[in-house]
């Protein structure tokens, strides 16, 4: 497999704040590479460095085998991107926005080709309406059309499903998978939506506070036999004391006062339930967190309800 993006010891410091620290990873040709991390983990800063929007403090970025600083324009010619939620030009129509960025990408696309791109993201019927009349989801889809318009080899999408409704999320997911399979495009997709990455990525990188905590194939990183369990009982103090004294003491993960997080094998779920009942501790809820989310949380030491934005 050819390495399309090679990042070595990349760091970015804003004043005294380390936004990205000593980050290294590789994206191979044909990958749908998931770039995972919570908000503020350093994903956008890393992506901005990949697109030469932000100057690294140190480290090396090679794309298509070339050093980014030396071959910036050549690399960007074959790279499509969308960073966060661009509003595009509200006073222009969707079609005019797309044509404008096509010209900036030094591409001579026909009117038909542009309309096909808009059709691909479900915007053909609104092509000639001003972007100011678009919903956030429509702007996001137009942004994706802009990223794809120069027929890039590498597509970098920063939080591409932000602002989309459930159907829109499915459509974008299918579009990414189809372009990857049928046209061989390589995707680097950042997201804080863990299940999104799990559904589309074959390889992934997880970062937290600007540092890499894991990189590899999704299959390698997730152990299907393990589960992160969110447990709520009638007496959390007694539950903690019981767990600490039991053979599951190592399974305890950072928790809150009323919810315990346990990193255990699937087989242990009924055993723990039975033991708690035997101890006279009532169970209010036992909720397994999905596999990738469990893995992510166990690595970043974040309580599940915090990661899910439910605090």
């Amino acid at each position: 497999m050819n390495a399309l993006v090679e990042v070595r010891h990349l760091s970015k410091r804003f004043g005294s704040f380390d936004a990205v620290h000593d980050l290294s990873f590789t994206v191979y040709e044909g990958d749908v590479f998931g770039f995972l991390g919570q908000n503020g983990a350093g994903k956008s800063t890393t992506i901005r460095m990949l697109l030469s929007l932000v100057r690294p403090t140190s480290g090396e970025i090679r794309v298509f085998g070339k050093e980014l600083r030396e071959a910036r324009e050549e690399i960007l010619l074959r790279t499509g991107s969308i960073i966060e939620n661009p509003d595009l030009y509200p006073y222009l129509t969707g079609f005019e926005n797309l044509r404008l960025f096509t010209r900036l990408g030094r591409v001579d696309a026909s009117r038909l080709a542009l309309m096909e791109r808009l059709e691909q993201v479900g915007l053909a019927s609104r092509a000639h309406d001003a972007v100011r009349t678009y919903s956030q989801g429509m702007k996001q889809r137009l942004g994706i059309a802009v990223a794809l318009v120069q027929d890039p080899l590498l597509v970098i999408l920063d939080e591409p499903t932000n602002g989309l409704d459930p159907q829109g999320i499915v459509d974008i997911r299918n579009l990414i998978l189809r372009l990857n399979r049928e046209e061989g495009k390589t995707f680097l997709v950042s997201s804080h939506l863990l299940n999104e990455v799990e559904l589309i990525a074959n390889r992934m990188l997880i970062i937290d506070k600007g540092r890499k905590i894991a990189e590899g194939s999704v299959r390698e990183l997730i152990d299907p036999e393990r589960v992160l369990l969110e447990l709520e009982t009638t007496d959390s103090g007694a539950t903690v004391l019981f767990m600490q004294a039991s053979r599951w003491s190592d399974a305890l993960r950072p928790s809150t006062s009323d919810r315990l997080m346990l990193d255990i094998s699937r087989d242990d779920v009924p055993r723990i339930a039975q033991s708690l009942v035997e101890q006279g501790i009532g169970i209010r809820s036992m909720k397994p967190v999905n596999s990738l989310e469990a893995y992510f949380l166990s690595l970043t030491n974040t309580p599940a309800h915090v990661a899910a934005g439910r605090d």
């Binding site: 030469s52 960007l76 969308i82 661009p86």
Partner: peptide
């Protein structure tokens, strides 16, 4: 303000 500066600067132009 529109968020288009980053789109422009990520295009293959100096």
């Amino acid at each position: 303000g529109l968020g288009t500066l980053r789109l422009l600067a990520a295009r293959p132009v100096s």
